[in-house]
Amino acid sequence: MDVPSTPNVQTQHTVMSHSREETTALGEALGRRLQAGDVVVLRGTLGAGKTVLTQGIGRGLGVREAVISPTFTLLREYYSGRLPLYHVDAYRLAGPAEAHTFGLDEYLYGDGVTVVEWGERVEPLLPPDRLEIELVYGARGERQITLTAAGLHYAELLRGLDLPTPPTSSQIGDEEAR
């Protein structure tokens, strides 16, 4: 996995999902392509579909058991798939210091795929190269899903997904302006 790190390159795709099934399917396609050590950060309000997307990722990885909400235990681990899946809910972590005691970095730099909900709470601990997915709840129940790849590895991964919308590229300097 010696992909050179180029965190300043970002690739962005936006797709629309009109149902739970479409969101699951996107997750599943991702799950089939994710590799050991990959980190996916999910953003979105309550009910935006973060857990549904993660269930799809689990399916794509071949996880057999139900992927359920990690809110109560902060973390759920699944080992029945092609790679371990670590599903983290950082909502109740007071900040990076606590996430550190909780051992988040051991999962992030571990042998599995880590999916982090409410990643903004632990921003400084997240690797610069990662896949960020933002889910926005639309007026008619549709979800606008924006996938942002930071680094070449994740850009490759998105390219492999064959997403309908052409990618838009930006430099990290644009980040502040968003």
Binding site: L46, G47, T51, Q55, A66, I68, S69, T71, F72
Partner: peptide, 18 residues
């Protein structure tokens, strides 16, 4: 059987938040 996503009490907490 058990929940496939959120626990019942968690749904109460999240809806109360909304």
């Amino acid at each position: 059987g058990s929940t496939l996503d959120d626990a019942a009490g968690e749904a109460f907490d999240k809806v109360a938040r909304m």
